[in-house]
Measured scan of single mutants.
Amino acid sequence: PKDEAKKKVKEAIKRGDEETAKRIAKKYNLDWDDAKREADEER
C-alpha cells in the first residue's frame, strides 16, 4: 500500500539514506518531493 511505502520513504530520508528513499518512491510511483517535504517537516 502507498501509505506504507511513503512511511518507508520518509524513514529512509530521516536516516539520511536518500538512495533507498528514491528507489522506494520510484517503485511505488510516489511523489519524491512530496515525501521529502513531509519528512523534513517531521524532523
Rank of each mutant, 00 (worst) to 15 (best):
P1C: 15
P1L: 14
P1S: 15
P1A: 14
K2N: 12
K2R: 13
K2F: 13
K2Q: 13
D3Q: 12
D3I: 12
D3W: 13
E4G: 07
E4A: 11
E4Q: 11
E4H: 10
A5Q: 06
A5M: 10
A5N: 04
A5T: 03
A5Y: 11
K6I: 13
K6Y: 12
K6E: 05
K6L: 15
K6H: 08
K6R: 14
K7F: 07
K7R: 14
K8R: 14
K8D: 05
K8G: 04
V9S: 01
V9K: 00
V9H: 01
V9A: 03
V9R: 00
V9L: 14
K10N: 07
K10V: 14
E11K: 02
E11S: 05
E11L: 04
E11F: 00
A12L: 15
A12Q: 02
A12N: 03
I13H: 01
I13R: 01
I13A: 01
I13C: 04
I13Q: 02
I13P: 01
K14A: 12
R15D: 07
R15C: 13
R15S: 09
G16F: 03
G16M: 03
D17F: 05
D17V: 00
D17H: 05
E18H: 12
E18K: 05
E18Y: 15
E18P: 06
E18S: 06
E18A: 05
E19A: 10
E19L: 08
E19K: 09
T20F: 09
T20C: 14
T20A: 12
T20L: 14
T20K: 06
T20Q: 10
K22V: 05
K22D: 01
K22L: 08
K22S: 04
K22M: 10
K22H: 06
R23T: 09
R23H: 08
I24C: 08
I24D: 02
I24R: 01
I24G: 00
A25L: 02
A25T: 03
A25E: 03
A25G: 01
A25K: 02
K26V: 07
K26W: 02
K27A: 12
K27H: 10
Y28S: 15
Y28N: 15
N29P: 15
N29C: 15
N29Y: 06
N29D: 14
N29V: 02
L30W: 05
L30D: 05
L30H: 02
L30G: 03
L30K: 02
L30Q: 02
D31Q: 03
D31F: 02
D31E: 06
D31M: 02
W32E: 02
W32R: 00
W32Q: 01
D33C: 14
D33F: 06
D33I: 08
D33R: 02
D34R: 05
D34Y: 05
A35I: 15
A35L: 15
A35W: 03
A35V: 15
A35K: 02
A35P: 03
A35M: 15
A35T: 12
K36W: 13
K36A: 07
R37Y: 07
R37E: 07
R37T: 06
R37F: 08
R37I: 06
E38Y: 04
E38A: 09
E38M: 07
A39Q: 05
D40C: 13
D40F: 12
D40H: 10
D40S: 10
D40P: 04
D40N: 10
E41T: 09
E41P: 06
E41F: 10
E42T: 08
E42H: 06
E42W: 04
E42K: 05
E42Y: 05
R43V: 13
R43K: 12
R43P: 11
R43G: 13
